[in-house]
């Protein structure tokens, strides 16, 4: 399949994520949107990895490792995302236990 499909898909997913973060009010949903952003990035990384690998092969480089770093990057993104999930969910739970709400509209104790 042409690389464009992947790029479009990833960009659309990313934009959905960004829109979600900016418009939704529920902390969990915002968080899920952020995860969506990260995963769209992962998708794009893998697609680009394949693309660069194919290009390197086409350019005549035999046994090239071009593109490998992108897939490694994906692993790191996953790990970091997991760490973020751990911390973020802990924070949301802590918040929920104190306020019984995860609506970020109610987060205005700091305004004044």
């Amino acid at each position: 399949m042409p690389i464009n499909y992947y790029i479009f898909l990833a960009i659309i997913l990313f934009c959905i994520g960004v829109t979600g973060v900016l418009t939704r009010r529920n902390a969990i949903i915002i968080f899920m949107c952020i995860e969506l952003m990260l995963n769209s990035v992962n998708l794009l990384l893998v697609a680009f990895s394949k693309m660069h690998h194919a290009r390197a092969l086409a350019a005549g480089a035999a046994n090239t490792t071009a593109g490998i770093e992108a897939q490694l990057f994906v692993f790191f993104i996953m790990v970091v995302a997991a760490a973020e999930v751990a911390v973020g969910l802990a924070i949301i739970v802590m918040m929920y236990r104190n306020t019984h709400s995860v609506d970020i509209n109610f987060l205005n104790r700091l305004k004044n």
Binding site: F75, M78, V79, A82, A86, L89, A90, V93, R97
Partner: peptide, 25 residues
Amino acid sequence: PMAIKYFLVAILFVLFDVEVIFFYP
């Protein structure tokens, strides 16, 4: 809210599972 223990297990799972994932490659 449920007991925090279950939640803790979930978080630990996320962390350790990702570490396990690293062993696969």
